[in-house]
Amino acid sequence: MTKKNVKVSIRHLYKIFGADPEGALAKVREGMTKAELLDQTSHVLGLQDINVDMKEGEITVIMGLSGSGKSTLIRHLNRLIEPTAGEVLVNGEDILSWNDAQMRTLRRESMSMVFQNFALLPHRTVLENAGMALATRGKARRDYEDQANKWLDRVGLVGQGEQYPHQLSGGMQQRVGIARALASNSDIMLMDEAFSALDPLIRTDMQNLLLELQDELQKTIIFITHDLDEALKLADHLVILKDGAVVQQGQPQEILLNPADPYIEEFVADINRARVLRVRSVMTDREPDGLVDGEVAPSDNLESIIALAEGNMDRAFRVKSNGETSGYIDMKSVVEALVPRRVDAQD
């Protein structure tokens, strides 16, 4: 696997809300906690020393409960919110030093956004909404119509272009939101709780749509969510945020198998591990003693292995990717992986 380039990178980012953020920042750097800061100076520590690298063509999921600062964080990437301190690097350039015109170009051409509440323009048709980014760049309707229609078709809204947003259901409105982001042809997409306002079945649909599009387009997607299932399903790189600070980040499988602290452990406790864990995270190089009963792919989840074994414990499988054997997996390790690991048990 080739090493992917870092597309967007956040360095030592702090955000403090209040009358004198600079003064409060000095106190935080001296080691004051969020609660103390609020108590003594009535400043709110929004984000604390965030360092995240987002790689090209990957979905980076930032997950946290409400109030953890995840929506604040994503708004720093296109500077809808200005940080108190730190750097935001896009393609290696610090966008915090950019002027308004440069920021406008960035927002118009290389960074699009999808919102939780869709935020479509209610007085424009679906087609005009989809073409919003292009229209903002000064293109006339007849010039962006083809592009907009293409993406509307792609997200499953064939022939709905002349409707108004309020005539569509929530799921369909968010499809328009996605089409709008895609039509801007930007290589970075910010998705702020994009599916949180949708009901579960439609949410699953939309997640599948996103994964399908991502297979094809390979965009750099930064996705915010409070739903761990969603995070694990979509993430190539998962960042868990708590009280404005990163608790753990890494591959989702990695986090699931090795939670860094009790908070995350509690977090992942309710997850259907069989569905989330993949063969590649559990497989070993050791050839099994007995018979090999079949072949599986590294990206298969453990649920499918259990189904393949028909519940029998004495089965083992060869893991094959691109025609080559990359490892083996037996049912014992599968079942072991299903039991959550305790952090304190390790210590």
Binding site: R107, R108, M113, F115, L120, A133, T136
Partner: peptide, 14 residues
Amino acid sequence: NPDVIEAADAFGMT
């Protein structure tokens, strides 16, 4: 709606 204004900003409207 402030959400809509934010979207307008996010897409780089003047």
